[in-house]
Amino acid sequence: MARLQIVDPHIHLWDLWTRIYPHFEKPGKGGGNAAIARSYLIEEYLEEGGDEFEIVGAVHVEAFPTDPIKETETLQKVADANPLPLVIVGNGDLTSTNFPALLDRHLQFPIFRGIRQVVNMHPNPERSYVSRDLMGEPQFLEGLRELGRRGLSFDLQLYPHQMETAAALAAKAPDTRIILNHAGMWADRHLSGWKQYKAGLRTLAAQPNIVAKISGLGMLDHKWTTESIRPLVLETLEAFGPGRAMFASNFPVDKLYSDFRTVWRAFSDIVSDATETERNGLFRDNARKFYRIPA
């Protein structure tokens, strides 16, 4: 039987010898991330699929580097040395007056496709990734528009209570493709939080320039099963449709909670009744389209 082909639109490759990922150089508090507090290189990643899944493309998403240009330069060298089609979503601050100049430098590298700037804020400070409301700053919208003017995309990582704000910004930057990360990160796991999440997904999906990446589900459900993630996958697909969504592994981060083949088997099981075209889109073709990855 032929292996299922995957273009994986959310991975992280980090080489600690670059010294741009100090947060991965030692285990965090309690040692919970010990399994990934080490270099994770393309050779290891390509072994994850075994003889069951054929990886035919991938997107490295910025891993909070201290030097964004060095990260892109390093990944360009990785891409040049390997046959796997590999592109990068780099790091950058949309609110910076130097953002256009930063894009100029990223664009020196052919694999560069766009920017991710994490905007997650939460009433519980321990769940916040940033210390200020980035989307509330006027320059953030200008940064989004600048990406669109250059044919670049924006990877959006946020929480459900921020989705309405993000949708309003997307409407004001219609030429910028915005890619929702990790199925919207349903963090508040109670009934009202679920209702907010469902409504937020549909508010985002109402903007035609937003697409969804279904990934990273283990980050908020450490003991996940196919059945525990099924509602999130199906809600995302119902909101965006199979033509505007894609599956991703979020490896090696989700390696903390499962293994690569189990993740992709779960996705395959959940959409087992989809058409061949829909499945090909979710597992391979949509990622190629949205991130402009050569076949």
Rank of each mutant, 00 (worst) to 15 (best):
T95F: 07
E73F: 11
I69P: 06
E73R: 15
V78K: 05
A81F: 07
D80C: 05
D67W: 03
L86M: 03
E73P: 02
N98P: 00
V59S: 03
D104R: 09
L103S: 04
V89I: 15
N98K: 14
F64W: 07
N82G: 09
D104F: 12
N98T: 08
P68A: 10
K70F: 09
P85V: 06
P83Y: 02
E71A: 02
A58P: 03
E62K: 08
N91M: 07
A63D: 02
T97D: 14
L94K: 00
E71C: 04
V78T: 07
I69R: 04
T97V: 15
I69K: 06
N98M: 07
E62S: 07
P83G: 01
A63I: 02
N91Q: 12
I69H: 08
E71F: 00
P65A: 12
D80K: 12
I88A: 09
P68Q: 12
D80G: 15
L103A: 11
I88S: 12
A81R: 06
L86T: 02
A81Y: 05
L102I: 13
T72I: 10
N98D: 14
D80Y: 12
N98W: 08
P100K: 13
F99R: 01
T72Q: 05
G92N: 13
F99Q: 11
H60E: 03
L84H: 10
P83R: 02
A58D: 02
L103K: 11
Q76N: 13
E71D: 14
P83N: 08
H60L: 05
T72V: 14
D93A: 13
N82W: 13
A81V: 02
L94H: 00
A81K: 08
H60P: 01
L86Y: 01
P85K: 00
L75M: 12
E73H: 12
A58W: 07
H60C: 06
N82L: 10
P100N: 10
L102V: 08
G90L: 00
P68W: 06
F64K: 09
G90H: 00
L86E: 05
V59D: 00
L84E: 11
D104N: 14
P68L: 13
E73A: 15
V78Q: 06
T97R: 15
V87N: 14
P100W: 10
V87G: 06
H60K: 08
F99P: 11
V89P: 03
A63S: 11
T95L: 07
T74I: 11
K70N: 03
E71M: 03
P65C: 09
V61M: 10
I69L: 15
A79K: 11
E73W: 10
V87C: 12
V61A: 06
E71R: 00
K70H: 07
P68G: 13
G92V: 05
V89N: 02
K70M: 07
